[in-house]
Amino acid sequence: MPARQRADARRNYARILAVAEEEVATRGADASLEQIARTAGVGSATVRRHFPTRRALLEAVSQTQIEALCARARDLAAGDGDSRTALLDWLGDVVAYSASIRGLAAALAHDGAGPDSLHENSCTAALEEAGNPLLHRAIGDGAVQADVTFAELITLVVGIALATESHPDPAAQADRLFRLAVAGLSPG
């Protein structure tokens, strides 16, 4: 949020964001924007002025966790451990976070409108910037197929999160599906 906004606008933004974090944690990414406005004590127009789209609100709510995932990616990339393990550990964390809140996968999904649509999503763009070094290192080490793209990895994460939203234990099921996707169908 721009620092040059009026003090009341900054307070409204902070209050809306705090309420949105609670609502999204309780009701998922489809939390009512009208309820968020009522609970925050502001009008719907004020919520829309600060967050013109649901995606913008979800990105703001997700910012702290996305920053933590990016920091973890940078730490893993700076390490000298096995590149495939580092990439898969980090992707596992992204899967776990994506499955943690019903509907959150929509905040990571790109709309497919064009080759750069992935970059119109600040959460995914930040993850891509942080995760690409892990992917490129694993590709360079021959531990991952050379034609794998970050967009494909995010699509896999989003698909798993969407597929497990209604499961009684979405995090556990998402982890199982991610491990199955990585290991393939071959035994042992």
Results as ranks from 00 to 15, higher is better:
A161Y: 11
L162T: 06
E22H: 07
Q145Y: 11
I154W: 05
P133D: 12
G81S: 11
L69W: 09
R54I: 02
L87V: 12
A3S: 12
E152A: 14
R84H: 05
D93L: 06
A105Q: 08
A99D: 04
H50M: 07
L153V: 02
E21Q: 15
V182C: 14
E23W: 03
D8Y: 12
R10Q: 13
C70I: 06
V158E: 02
I66M: 09
L76W: 07
I36F: 02
Q5N: 10
W90E: 08
C123A: 13
A113K: 13
G43Y: 12
Q145D: 15
N12R: 14
R49M: 04
A56W: 06
N12K: 12
L134F: 04
R6C: 03
R6L: 11
R74Y: 03
D93N: 10
A183C: 04
E59G: 03
A71D: 15
V19T: 13
A31K: 09
A9E: 15
T164H: 02
S100Q: 04
H119P: 00
R179E: 13
E129Y: 08
T64A: 15
T85M: 05
A143N: 08
G142E: 07
A78W: 00
A29Q: 07
A161R: 09
V61S: 06
S62D: 12
R11C: 01
V42W: 11
A107S: 15
E34C: 00
S186A: 10
N121H: 15
A163M: 03
Q145V: 12
L127C: 07
H136M: 10
L156W: 01
A106R: 15
G28H: 10
D116V: 06
D75H: 14
G140W: 02
A174S: 12
D82C: 01
A60V: 07
S117F: 06
A7F: 07
D111W: 03
A60M: 06
I101M: 14
G112S: 06
T124D: 07
A163T: 09
E129V: 14
R179Y: 01
P133G: 09
F178C: 04
G28R: 08
A96F: 04
D30S: 10
I139H: 03
